[in-house]
Design a protein around this nucleic acid. Structure first.
Lengths: 202, 202
DNA sequence: CCGATACGCAACGGTTCCGTTTCATAAACC
DNA sequence: GGTTTATGAAACGGAACCGTTGCGTATCGG
C-alpha cells in the first residue's frame, strides 16, 4: 500500500497517456469519415497513419473500431441553432439553412455521411449518434413546429413529426442530387415556402 | 479462309459462353447489393462464390467490378408505375406507394441501397443507374405534377421539380428512420395530404 | 536514479481479396 | 476424331489489414 497524498482516484504510476495522441486519433477518424469513408471502410491502420500514431496507442484505448467511432462522434456535439422566434416560417428557414451550411464543413460532412449510411450496419454507432447529434436538434425543431400549431401559424391538426420528416428529407434529398454546393443557395427558403403554402391552390 | 454458310457475324469456334453462368453472376451481384453491400464492399470472390462460378468466368466477361455492376444494374429496368389519372392526389399517392412497396423486394432494396450510396464514389455506376432506373420514372411523375398545374389541381406557380424532390425526399427519409417496414403503412397518403394542403392554415 | 507505464516503430502470423495462371474437363464446330 | 474455346477448381505472388508482440526511447512518480 503506497502513501496516498491526493484524494480521489489513485493516479497510476508511470508515464501518463498523451492527450495529444488521443486528440489526433479522434481527429483522424473524423477526417476519414468526413472524406466519405463508411465505418466499415475505416481501418485502424489508416487512422493510425493519419494521426501519426502507432497502432498500439489506439488499441490501448479502444478495444474495437466501433468504440473508437462512438467516441469520435461524441466530440461532434452540434450546437443548437438559435431561433429568432419572430415567425415559424423564419425559424424553419433558419433550421434548413443551418443544415445546409454545416454540410460544407468537416463536422457537417461527418454527420451527413453517418446519416446516409446503413443504420442496420453499426447499430451501436447509430444509436449513440442519434442521441447525441440528432435528438437534441430534433426536439428543438419540433418545439418550433408545436409553437406554430399553438399560435395559429400552422394548421391545428398538423402532424408535426411528419412535417419535420418532410422538411429534413426534402433538404437532404435535394442536396444529394445537386452536384455543386452553390446550387443549394435558395433551397431552404423555397422548400419552406412550398410546404407552408401547400401544392394545392388556396 | 473457311467456307461461310451463315450470314451475319461469324460465330467463333469452340464452346460458347454459358448464358446460365452469366445470369448467375448478375443475380449474385444484385443479391449482394440488395443485402446492403456497397459497391466498394463487393468482392469478385464473394460474387463468384455466391454464383457458383469460377473467378475466371467473371474476369473473362468484365474487366473490372464497376463494369459488372453497371451491367447488373441494367437488368433492373423498373416498370413505369401505372397512374389511374383520376386525380393528381391519387396518382402521387400511387407513386409513393410504389416506391414504398418496391423497397420490400430485392430489386427495390438494390435501388435504395445504390441511391443511398455516395454518388461521388462510383460516378459511372451512378450515371448509368440514374439514366436507367431514375430518369424515366422521374419524367413520369413530373408529367403528373405538370398535369396538375395545367388543370388547376395544383398551384400555377408550383415548382414541380422542387415538389418532386420534397415528395421523394420525405418518403425516403421516413423509410430510413422507421425500424419496421410495417410502420410505413399509411405514410404515402399522409405525406401527400400534408404537402398538398400545406402546413399553414387555409 | 528507479520502477512503471506510454510512446512510435517494426515485425509477426493470419485473413481476405486481388488479378493471373495452370489444369483437367466440357461443349461447340469441322 | 480433332480443333477450339469456356468452365470450375486450385494455386500463385502481392497487397491491405487484422490484433499482437518486442524493442528502444520518453516521461511520469517516488
Amino acid at each position: 500500500m503506497t502513501t496516498q497524498t491526493t484524494t480521489g482516484a489513485a493516479r497510476p504510476a508511470g508515464r501518463p497517456r498523451s492527450e495529444k495522441a488521443e486528440k489526433a486519433i479522434i481527429e483522424a477518424t473524423l477526417d476519414l469519415i468526413g472524406e466519405g469513408n463508411s465505418v466499415s471502410e475505416l481501418s485502424i491502420e489508416a487512422i493510425a497513419a493519419r494521426a501519426g500514431v502507432g497502432k498500439t496507442t489506439i488499441y490501448r484505448r479502444w478495444s474495437n473500431k466501433e468504440d473508437l467511432v462512438v467516441d469520435a462522434l461524441s466530440s461532434l456535439k452540434a450546437p443548437l441553432p438559435q431561433f429568432a422566434g419572430r415567425s415559424v416560417r423564419e425559424d424553419l428557414i433558419t433550421w434548413l439553412r443551418v443544415i445546409s451550411t454545416e454540410s460544407a464543413d468537416r463536422r457537417g460532412r461527418c454527420v451527413m455521411n453517418i446519416l446516409n449510411s446503413d443504420p442496420g450496419r453499426h447499430p451501436r454507432v447509430m444509436e449513440r449518434f442519434y442521441e447525441l447529434a440528432i435528438k437534441p436538434r430534433r426536439e428543438a425543431v419540433l418545439a418550433v413546429l408545436r409553437r406554430g400549431v399553438a399560435n395559429g401559424e400552422l394548421r391545428p391538426d398538423l402532424d408535426v413529426d411528419l412535417a419535420m420528416t418532410i422538411l429534413n428529407g426534402a433538404l437532404v434529398w435535394a442536396g444529394k442530387w445537386l452536384d455543386h454546393p452553390g446550387q443549394m443557395e435558395g433551397i431552404p427558403d423555397r422548400i419552406v415556402n412550398e410546404v407552408l403554402r401547400g401544392f394545392a391552390p388556396a
